[in-house]
Amino acid sequence: MTEPKTKDSHLSVNVWRGGNEGELVNYQVPARENQTVLDVITEIQRFQQPDLAYRFACRVGVCGSCAMTVNGLPRWTCRTHIKKVVDNGQLTVEPLRNLPRIKDLVCDLEPFIDTWKKAGAPFSGSRTRYDPPANIKPDSPLRQAADAGLQCINCAVCYSACDVVHWNRDYVGPAALNRAWTLVNDVRHAKRQETFEKAFSENGCQSCHSHGNCTRHCPIQLNPSESITGLKKMVFKGLPKEDKK
């Protein structure tokens, strides 16, 4: 690793270079009043290391593509202000944990996406375009349970934070199970029982140890841990019935 040369007006940023084999390389980046981790990485790529590979798209916390490991913790870099994470002028940025590394800060997300199918996604509709839309009351308990798990941006931060995924790569992980939770509570989903069976399979929610790292690190404050607990309870109570009210 290159020796850091800290200057007062600069951040000393260690960035992972390489794939699964590689090293941390130090860059000096001007410290600014307002900058995010993604800003810092972009500045390195634009002005110092043109071949630095990293992912981003929206830059406003919607697309979920810029997640990285920042000072040891998984974060969405576009919404992470430097002041929140910088440690004595030092910053270490690595790719997400638990995923194969392709180059520099870019991971192969295919294993993460595959887990969603293993846990019972995608949505399977039971109506055609000629049928009237389902009449779902937003305040019904079932809908609210499903709503609580929606809005996931697929950033893989929870998957990276999960220690169970770290020691058992067959475990589908929190994001996939959170998605399964939204589907088993969605009365429009035609394969609710099938989704539940998959989510409850051996490498599904049974493997969760309830560490809660997923919930702790989710950048949009979802609670996958609660979704997984809900799935575990369903093995006793069965699938929730369609709302009558």
Partner: peptide, 11 residues
């Protein structure tokens, strides 16, 4: 079988 073991352990 795993499902029944899960239930048996919790109960």
């Amino acid at each position: 079988m795993n499902r029944y073991l899960f239930i048996a352990q919790r109960l």
